[in-house]
């Protein structure tokens, strides 16, 4: 569990993780916020559904993918928090566009 070891004075901003409002220090990356909040897994892989969390914290491993303000597959370790930012876990593949599986059952 990550803990704060004594952070310098920083302004705080409000972000929304799923349904929960969190006050976080300005300048934090989204990945740092998740780890500080004890959120260990931020996504499930598209291949097997295995849980994954941040790994490299420098933008190379693409393990910390989350949905930010509705945009899927954002690297949490490369994005910095902003007031009002919405953060959600990424479940499998990017959920964009129509869903062919839903379209299977025409309403008529």
């Amino acid at each position: 569990m990550f803990t704060n070891i004594g952070i310098r004075d920083r302004d705080f901003v409000r972000v929304i993780f799923e349904d929960q409002e969190i006050m976080v220090p300005q300048g934090h990356t989204v990945a740092a916020v998740l780890l500080a909040e004890g959120i260990r897994s931020c996504r499930e892989t598209p291949v097997s559904g295995a849980p994954r969390g941040p790994y490299c914290m420098m933008g190379i491993c693409f393990e910390c993918l989350v949905v930010i303000d509705g945009e899927p597959n954002q690297q949490a370790c490369m994005r910095h928090v902003r007031e009002g930012m919405s953060i959600e876990r990424q479940h499998g593949v990017a959920q964009i566009g129509p869903d062919a599986n839903a379209a299977q059952d025409p309403a008529e």
Binding site: F2, A50, Y55, M58
Partner: peptide
């Protein structure tokens, strides 16, 4: 090594430098 909370030493240092975060234990 793919399990959540298995990270790199470099990542620990990034968190220390940029967010003053460290993992106890």
């Amino acid at each position: 090594w793919t399990l959540p909370s298995v990270m790199t030493a470099g990542s620990a240092q990034v968190l220390l430098k940029s967010a003053a975060l460290a993992a106890d234990g």
